[in-house]
């Protein structure tokens, strides 16, 4: 399916899905946090989409807008197309339902995002730090992360 057609088809899936045009190369949609697992499950199971693999999960800290953007990159082996699904959550209370039940690899990808951004995943079976020690304070990839240890590059 072509990029525009795919984007339109995914948006027709549910009223909680809306298009996103920030990506230059692939279809992208915004999904409301509460509807995420159901939508991703339908994207996986419906044969016209068949998004079998969760390739990647990224978080972006939009500090000016007070939001985290959580991006899920999906791939379909059957139709050979990509889709990026975005979820916006408030920075003060970043909570989103987990995708572990739909794509098992989400368990660790979500742990990475929790570790570096502090996004909490509802119903996650094993939410703990992945790269840093359990007693680490703060979430280092947030834009406002401060640390006595870090050095700034001399300009």
């Amino acid at each position: 399916m072509e990029r525009e057609a795919l984007q339109a088809a995914v948006c027709e899936l549910d009223s909680t899905v809306s298009p996103l045009d920030a990506n230059a190369d692939r279809a992208a949609v915004i999904v409301e946090a509460s509807a995420l697992p159901a939508i991703v499950r339908r994207l996986r199971d419906q044969p016209q989409f068949a998004f079998a693999q969760l390739l990647d999960h990224v978080a972006v800290d939009w500090i000016d807008r007070g939001q985290f953007e959580l991006i899920y990159q999906l791939y379909s082996f059957k139709h050979k197309h990509f889709l990026s699904v975005s979820v916006f959550v408030p920075r003060e209370d970043p909570r989103v339902p987990t995708l572990c039940r739909v794509h098992p690899v989400a368990e660790w990808q979500e742990r990475e995002v929790y570790d570096l951004f502090g996004v909490l995943y509802d119903d996650h079976p094993d939410l703990r730090r992945l790269f840093l020690e359990d007693d680490w304070v703060g979430f280092p990839l947030r834009k406002d992360y401060q640390d006595d240890f870090m050095l700034d590059r001399p300009r």
Partner: peptide, 20 residues
């Protein structure tokens, strides 16, 4: 301004680069 995702096949699998 925007988001860019590019990927290729390394010796171990897909390496994706995501730039905002």
């Amino acid at each position: 301004e925007g988001r860019y995702y590019s990927q290729l096949e390394t010796a171990r699998g897909i390496l994706g680069v995501f730039i905002v």
